[in-house]
Write a protein that binds this DNA or RNA. Sequence first.
DNA 1: AACTTTGCCAACCGCGGTGAT
DNA 2: CATCACCGCGGTTGGCAAAGT
Length: 315
Amino acid sequence: MSTAMRTVTNSNEEEFELRRGPWTLEEDTLLIHYIAFHGEGRWNLLAKCAGLKRTGKSCRLRWLNYLKPDIKRGNLTLQEQLLILELHSKWGNRWSKIAQHLPGRTDNEIKNYWRTRVQKQARQLKIESNSKRFLEAIRCIWMPRLLEKLEQTSSSSPFSSSATSTMETQNSTITSLVKNQADLALSSSQETKLMDSCNHQNENLISMTSSNVCFTDSMRISILPEISEHPTSPGPAISNTAYNNSFLNDCYYVDISTYDMEGFNLAPMSAEGTHDNSLSDCQMAENNWINDDESSTLWEMDELWQFGKPEEEGI
DNA sequence: AACTTTGCCAACCGCGGTGAT
DNA sequence: CATCACCGCGGTTGGCAAAGT
C-alpha cells in the first residue's frame, strides 16, 4: 500500500481515505485559505471543514512548520546557533521552548539542527551527546568560536551577511552583547589557564598566547540576554546570564588566538601536522559541520581530540 | 556512469497534559 | 472523579538530493 494514503476505518462513520506523506500544493492552498478565514486551532475540526483528508495533527504540523507566514527559511545564523546552544544547555531538549526564542524558527527545525549538526559531532567523537564532556566542548570551544566569528562578521560586514538580514532585533542585541563580551574577554591578560578537561592532556598542542577568551564566574559568556521562562516579543531583555552548570564552576580560559577562523577548514590533516597518530583512532569530525558560508567550522582537531579522549581525571 | 553513502528535513508516531463533559 | 477528545511536544523515520567511491 502506498505510504501516502492509508485507509482508516471509523466505526461510526463511513470509511474514508486519509492522506499521508508530502503535502500537495492544493492541500497547502486549502489549508492556508481556511486558516485565513477562520483562524487556526481546533485542528481536527479544521481538517474536516477545510475538506482536507488529513488528520488535525497533520494539518497543525504543516501549518506550524511550513505554511505559517512568519516561518523563516534558510541556514541558521550564528546568533541563532548561539542561542540554540545556550538555551539547550539551559533547558535540554525542550525544543518548543527553545524555538520560542528564535522567531520564525520551528521546534522541528531546531531539533533537526541539533540532531544533524551537534549530535553528529558527539558521535564522531564517540562521546555521549548529553555527556558533560561534550557539553564542555560546546561551551569551551564551540560557543567561543561562534562568538569570535560573530565578532568578525559584525565588524567586517555588518550589513552583508544573512545573519544580519534576519533576526534584526536579536542580532543587534546579541551582537552588542557579544562585542562587549569579546572586548571584555580580550582585554584580559591574566595568566593562562587551560580548561579542566584540557588541563593535563597534550598541552603542547595548544599554544597559548596573551589573548585569551576568559570565562570566569563573574563574566561568563553573557552573550545572551536573560531568557525568561515566558518569552515576550519582540526580543528578550538584556541582562547578564550566569551559567549555573556545575561543571562550569571553574574558570575556563580558552585561547582563541590559535583559532584561525579564516584558515579554519580542518582540511585533511597533513602527516607532518602537530597531531599525534593516535588521532586516527578518534574518528575525528570532518571539516564541515557548520559549513555554510557564514559559519565555518568551529572545531579544531586538537580541541576535538582533547574532548574525544576517554573520560579520565574524574571529569 | 553507476552505485553507495551521507546529510538534511518534512512528516509521522506515541505519549502526556489539559479541558470538557 | 472518570472518561474522552484534543492538542502540543519530543523522538523517530522515510525519502530525496548531494557527495563520495
